[in-house]
Amino acid sequence: MPTPVIEVSGLTKSYGSHHVLKGVSFEVPPGQIFAMLGPNGAGKTTTISILTTLLRPDSGTVRVADTDVLAEPKQTRGSISLTGQFASVDAFQTGRENLAMMCRLAHLSRRQAVQRSAELLDQFGLTDAANRRVAQYSGGMRRRLDLAISLIAKPPVVFLDEPTTGLDPRSRVQLWSVVRDLAAEGTTIVLTTQYLDEADQLADRIAVLDDGAIVAEGTTAELKSRISGQHVEFTFDDARSFELARSLTTPSSENAELFMLSLAAPAPMREIQSMLALATENGFAVSDVSIVKPTLDDVFLALTEQSPLELVTAWAPSPALAPPDRRRSPI
């Protein structure tokens, strides 16, 4: 494994008796997208604030891009950019002016500032809106401008704190593709999100944060493999078919009212074939089949042992296209 770009070890932070971080440690190799996933108050933003020199931890060590964040924050600032939860662009300036100002603050010459602003406006599809004031921009355009600003100095490490909160589904997908392109060019990205599908879509590795500690870390696949695997759900025509099928198989769960049986199925197609064979042999009818793959929702539920009711209150509704329930592939 290459030398990590980010090394975080034993971070703690308390406000009085409230322990916001209780020993957070992780590493991010170069060019990866690392997602911190967790509900509000889990400590995501606090961690980002520490990594971006805004906040000092009570204990722990942080290295970002070969700099010691706590000892030499100015050096760190030369290698990072932060896009916070709010689009921090000035509504009273045009998109081009916002970019040019930030170029000047990144110490580009006037000529370079004009050139780099034009490049970024183009890259983020904002050229047509460049001379309009940001007050007239949509939420998605503001976020894109905000992200463009954070890339002015081509920082090797980019921090995105809830980059798509409040965006419509189309803008989210656009922003995701920008983030993927960045990572493809070698930028290391740390993002926080409350949306499971966002982490699932974007991240190479995911750390699940709950109550100030990382409760799980790994690739999406690794996390999903930690809980029960795929299932096949069969629905039957009537009670007789349902009872017959139930007596002939070993379902992991069942719903007698809906005539549904759920079977653990590492190889779902084989399971479906054998069920259909049973149906033919014994003369009962299957009316519907679906393969149910575990989602990060299931992982999160399992890891944090939150009741569904708590989840509803702790998690903002996902604006994603996909509904937040289990992902089904119809057959």
Binding site: T53, R77, L82, Q85, M102, A106, S150
Partner: peptide
């Protein structure tokens, strides 16, 4: 302060 602009400025090497 509320718009997060200060955070952006504070993380710049300015």
């Amino acid at each position: 302060m509320t718009s997060g602009t200060i955070d952006r400025f504070k993380t710049l090497p300015i």
